[in-house]
């Protein structure tokens, strides 16, 4: 790991002021992604700004929803009583990710900001437009089994690895940021950006901004499920994952939210499948159609074509499990 300067900040404004002053600085929260990237030489900030002491750890129920501080750990969120009762989908998605030890360290802000796990991004001997803009993309003509089937560009076909964000996308979460420009509220589905011609920029967060909290609006969904398909039963990133939240009344879906992970550079909402489901009576055929619809615009590379049929089945299965669930 290349040596860096370290400082710790104790207010939100001190955090973004420090970032403004040192353009090659990085915030550190739980460290589970940044330390790994620094060890590999993928990232080598001149300064690391420790934000772990900021008062952003609380999880509070507000009038219209739940506010979660950016420094709340993934474990704290999953175990929180309100998350268990009112946002079980979020709990399920978090518990499907990483391991006990990582969830004790990983924060909500860090999870949203985590970088892709594309192996070429991690291998500094390989070309990668995300790590080294203009160097090319190792994955497009390389081994691209884990890569995107939606939202990619000629410059980058990587996927966003988070499970938590897929649930947040289904729950219409708002990301609250702070920086020199003041406070901003950004919908999670608009927070991560598509690679287009500049894949080095993962999100719309400005250089000096930090995430202060996320806000999940109250909802009336009474059925939900997070289905994660991976190479081993536990402790692996998703090949494909599906978050489902439904409001079901007397066998009819009155409202639905569907999002997918492992398929795109950002958590991928399935708007047209949602539309297809809304107002319909639950039948196995309806869920099969929703799966077909979900993958209609997908297109694959040499090694990841399996994600298209897998995605269809995963959506169908997740819907089935959601209606069988007690929450």
């Amino acid at each position: 790991m290349i040596a860096f300067d370290y400082s710790s900040v104790n207010s939100i404004s001190a955090a973004w002021e420090a970032k403004l002053k040192f353009p090659n600085a990085e915030f550190i929260a739980g460290g589970t992604n940044l330390v790994d990237l620094m060890k590999k030489g993928v990232t080598s900030p001149g300064k690391v700004i420790d934000i772990s002491h900021l008062p952003l750890k609380s999880i509070t129920e507000e009038k219209n929803g739940l506010r979660i501080g950016a420094l709340a750990t993934n474990a704290d969120v999953a175990e929180h009583p309100t998350v268990r009762t009112k946002f079980p989908l979020l709990r399920m998605a978090i518990l499907a990710g990483a391991s006990v030890q990582l969830r004790n360290m990983a924060t909500v802000g860090g999870n949203i900001m985590q970088r892709t796990r594309c192996p070429y991004f991690y291998d500094t001997a390989m070309p990668c437009n995300k790590r080294n803009p203009g160097s090319g993309c190792g994955a497009i003509d390389g081994y691209n089994r884990m890569h995107a089937v939606f939202g990619f560009s000629d410059s980058c076909i990587a996927v966003h690895p988070s499970d938590m964000c897929v649930a947040l996308a289904a729950l219409d979460t708002i990301v609250n940021t702070e920086g020199k420009k003041g406070k901003r509220q950004i919908l999670i589905t608009q927070f991560h950006r598509l690679p287009e011609k500049n894949p080095e920029k993962d999100t719309v967060l400005l250089a000096d901004e930090l995430i202060a909290s996320v806000f999940i609006p109250e909802n009336k969904f009474n059925k939900s499920y997070y289905l994660k398909i991976r190479d081993r039963q536990s402790f692996a990133f998703a090949l494909v994952s599906v978050a489902v939240a439904l409001h079901v009344e007397q066998g009819v879906i009155t409202d639905s939210r569907l999002a997918m992970g492992g398929v795109a550079p950002k958590p991928w909402r399935l708007y047209t499948s949602e539309k297809l489901l809304n107002g319909k009576k639950i039948t196995p055929e309806l869920f099969r159609e929703a799966g077909e619809e979900a993958m209609r615009d997908a297109s694959a590379f040499k090694h990841n074509a399996f994600k298209i049929p897998l995605g269809k089945k995963a959506v169908t299965e997740a819907l089935k499990r959601a209606v069988e669930s007690s929450f």
């Binding site: 370290y6 710790s8 460290g31 006990v100 030890q101 004790n104 360290m105």
Partner: peptide
């Protein structure tokens, strides 16, 4: 009291 991976923890923090 909580298990973590010490290889990803900066001691200075």
């Amino acid at each position: 009291g909580k298990p973590v991976y010490s290889c990803l923890v900066l001691a200075v923090m």
